[in-house]
Nucleic acid binder design. Structure first.
Length: 267
DNA sequence: AATTTTTGCAACCGCGCACGA
DNA sequence: GTCGTGCGCGGTTGCAAAAAT
């Protein structure tokens, strides 16, 4: 029963990616795109499984990624979205331009969770801890089945976005005691960061994912005209500079950068 | 300065879904 | 309808760096 693991072949490398592997993967995808991930490692000359390549690309190498800590606004947005969507990190990430589900999940577990606890809020339900039911201990542990527990107080995403696109005040989060606070924060976010706000209310728009970058390849004009917080065309080139962050220059990417520019400018 | 503990993040694992044969 | 395949997601692990002792 069950599927064969995709990575059980001998000679398939695991563990941290080397600069050389990164280079190969980036070069390949920028030149060819990814037809199917399973084929990518073979075609790119990597001894990795396709899954690993996809993960590496989406979580670390994609040019439209922001690096660094989440801003206050982003963090609040994550909190608000988590209150509505639960642990659906990919959905949350889709509304944060340049952020990955993995990054948000990690940030949630390492920073935001603690922050909420400090504020006396249950990171799962977003309700004040002292309001918890007597069975809270159990629920808290089962709450780690966060999908259920979070899911229970969540509105289906479509519904959510419809509601929000029509009237923020009817947001389902009003069912929670901390929601007024959150809504205010969210308003703040939206006012202060229009791109974030815009992206939040647009449902099912794959703001940032492989597909949006790969397949749709929006032009710089598209990006700017929608003001969705994508990196501009200029940014798409300047990400090369950002690559310094992960040592891209350390592995001699002079020719690589030329390739990228050609690909970005002449898709 | 050396050792231990904690933290943060990249990567892996396994499951479920979608889709085509 | 079922089976196989590929992909994406969420949870978990492993390890390096930072902090504490």
């Amino acid at each position: 029963m069950g599927r064969q693991p995709c990575c059980d072949k001998l000679g398939v490398k695991k563990g941290p990616w080397t600069a050389e592997e990164d280079k190969k993967l980036i070069n390949f995808i920028l030149t060819n795109g990814h037809c199917c991930w399973r084929a990518v490692p073979k075609l790119a000359g990597l001894r990795r499984c396709g899954k690993s390549c996809r993960l590496r690309w989406t979580n670390y190498l994609r040019p439209d990624l922001k690096r660094g800590l989440l801003s206050e606004a982003e963090e609040q947005l994550v909190i608000d979205l988590h209150a509505r969507l639960g642990n659906r990190w990919s959905k949350i990430a889709a509304r944060l331009p340049g952020r990955t589900d993995n990054e948000i999940k990690n940030h949630w577990n390492t920073h935001i969770k603690k922050k909420l606890l400090k504020m006396g809020l249950d990171p799962v339900t977003h309700e004040p801890l002292h309001d918890k039911q007597p069975f809270s201990e159990e629920t808290a542990s089962t709450a780690s089945h966060s999908q259920e527990s979070a899911g229970n107080h969540c509105v289906p995403e479509n519904e959510y976005s419809i509601i929000n696109s029509e009237n923020n005040s009817s947001s389902p989060t009003e069912n929670c005691s901390s929601d007024v606070h959150e809504s205010l924060l969210l308003d703040n976010i939206c006012n202060n960061n229009e791109s974030l706000g815009n992206s939040l209310w647009i449902d099912e728009v794959p703001l940032v994912d492989g597909a949006s970058w790969e397949n749709q390849q929006p032009t710089g004009e598209d990006i700017c005209s929608h003001n969705l917080g994508f990196p501009s065309l200029e940014d798409n080139c300047s990400w090369l500079l950002d690559c310094q962050d992960f040592g891209i220059h350390d592995f001699g990417f002079d020719s690589f950068s030329t390739d990228i520019e050609l690909n970005v400018l002449n898709p």
